[in-house]
Write a protein that binds this DNA or RNA. Structure first.
Lengths: 206, 206, 206, 206
DNA sequence: GATGAATGAGCATTCATTCAT
DNA sequence: GATGAATGAATGCTCATTCAT
């Protein structure tokens, strides 16, 4: 790191430059993943698309995997931001409205960048997906927290089991809705699916 | 090329030999996939494990992908065999018993070869998974058929939507149950999950 | 390896082919080492010069180092063949004649492929030179054996020490003679050096 | 570029700073060479260890080779200082005592920094070792000078040949003594080797 | 002068596929 | 049909060196 120069601007300048490079690399990786798939995403190609040299790529990411992991993390973070916000808003909402909101948000989240979501879901060797564990755990914890606070509206049920089933269900409906038939994805259809899923989950919890 | 007339015994012998080679190759691929993961599964290695030369491998499979596809197809076929049988048995069974049976079978099916299932689910570039579409369609059709025959026990609902939601739900619970926590997989826990899932689905359909 | 075909010719043919490839690779490595130095010796270049694909190179040698090691071993083996032969011939020869012969042979041995010898001596990361240890030990053992058999002609002296000093001396004179000034290497000069070195060593042992 | 006039204190300060940087770089190179070997010694790493930026490194050394050369030169200079001093002290000393001194000094010199000596001897592409030529020549000249002054104690012999042989011998014994077996390096053993080598060389010259 | 981010040629190595035997 | 030696395009990655700040 050497002696830091006394002026912050220089430091910031360099930090910003680094940050820009890192962003460009992650963005380029995501773009290639979407446009050409995982197998085409070579490090040299990523660097080229990012407008950066391979050397720089390796200055910031120790391996190709790290780069893919960064893309995944960024995507997950975007999803989690939505989910967290939704769960906060929901906090004091009764079960049926809350579940409907949750289902809606799940589909929305999967739709942020559906192509990327598909590639991530379908083509990435899961080696990279350890982060996903943490992501799953957080969702579980948040949903469990909400359900706990609404226990009086619910029948007697093991909270972990209920959480597991609800999250699985909502997630899979959202996932399949987004990934499956494009024709199915009329807004009307989505609304139907939201209603139906909500009905099922709420019916189950009550 | 063969100087001998195509007497059927010889022909059969050769056909059997071919069949054996093909089987050995698919089996070897599956084994490597399970033991060492997709990335380690090189064609040379597969041929070696199968006790066959690479040349022979390419006599029977035009590419590595074809080989992986064959493994997937074999696995799916095993699953489908179970599902088809289950759905036949269920045909005249009332909704709740039938759904319980379906959930049970779904988990069983995912458990046939859980390690292979995991690798297939987690490591295989989905390029190979076009076959899965057909598989999904068949399941949808079969389940839809059953539901149609039980319409009187059900509330009024779009059959395709209901099928989509039920299949998604059952599949995801089974999938997550098998892939997730090992500790969770006590038989007792599995029973609880079966009951809960059944309750949710039946509650939804009625 | 698969079923071996019953006829030896086929087997030999393939063995010969392999052998030819291996030889070509080792030879190419040596040539590049001599002509362009260690740093220029990339595996792709070696394969190219050998008239073989990189893939084939890696079929026979697990790494670049293995290739260099093979060159060294081949060179050392050539030297050792000479040294072993010389020591056999010498077995019943009196000290002075024997030492003269040894010195002569040492210089000869270093002259087999002096350019390669130089490169090996000067440019090869010694990582590769573990084999050289064995080589040194063998020389030590052989020379010690001879000296032991001639003990009566020698003054009282620790045999290992004497061997160490004699081998070091002869080796270094031979090495420096071959590596140093080209002008020095007139045949006449070499004879002088042989005589002088012999005189020194014999004088020391007696 | 500098706005300040080149007052000598400042200049000195800067000169000293330069000198310190150069020293730090050479020292860092030597340290890495010893601890991690030539292959690990990247310029970035050297600069880092020296507490300096790569840019600064290239301000003082035009290439990695130059840096390694500086290490070699420093090491050789240390050795030569010892050798020169020894030869001065020896100037009026009779042959046997002088040779003993020379052998002793040779071993001492190789022992100044034996690890560095080993790395320099074993891992450095000799491209860098042109300097060594000059070093060798100086040793030759110094020893020849001494021998010339002692001609009356010696038999008739070509001085260059005798010098070449003596230097080779002493150098190789010292080198092998230091590099070879660690067990061999008891002080007692070293003394024996000194005596024996002296005996050989003196016996040869007389 | 000093910094360290950026460069990119170059390297060792892998592996799906071909084809002479 | 079977074999396995041979292929070579392609990949991930390193590191000496440059240059904008």
């Amino acid at each position: 790191m050497a002696r830091k120069p006394p002026t912050s601007p220089r430091k910031n300048a360099s930090q910003e430059r680094s940050r820009a490079t890192v962003d460009a690399l992650v963005e380029a990786t995501a773009r290639i993943l979407v446009k050409e798939g995982f197998e085409q995403a070579s490090t040299n190609r990523i660097a080229e698309i990012a407008g950066v040299s391979v050397g720089s790529l390796y200055q910031y990411f120790p391996s190709k995997e790290a780069l893919v992991a960064a893309v995944i993390e960024r995507h997950n973070e975007e999803i989690m931001a939505i989910v967290r916000t939704a769960l906060k808003k929901i906090a004091d909402t009764p079960l049926d409205k809350a579940v409907r909101q949750l289902v809606t948000v799940a589909i929305e989240a999967h739709r942020i960048n559906p192509k990327l979501h598909r590639v991530l879901a379908e083509q990435i060797p899961r080696k990279h997906l350890k982060d996903v564990e943490a992501f799953n755990r957080e969702v579980h914890t948040l949903v469990r927290g909400y359900l706990e606070s609404r226990r009086k509206e619910m029948r007697k049920v093991d909270l972990d089991v209920a959480t597991f089933i609800c999250v699985s269900t909502i997630e899979s409906v959202a996932h399949n809705t987004v990934l499956n038939q494009t024709e199915m994805l009329t807004e009307k259809m989505v609304k139907v699916l939201v209603e139906e899923t909500t009905r099922m989950v709420v019916g189950y919890l009550r």
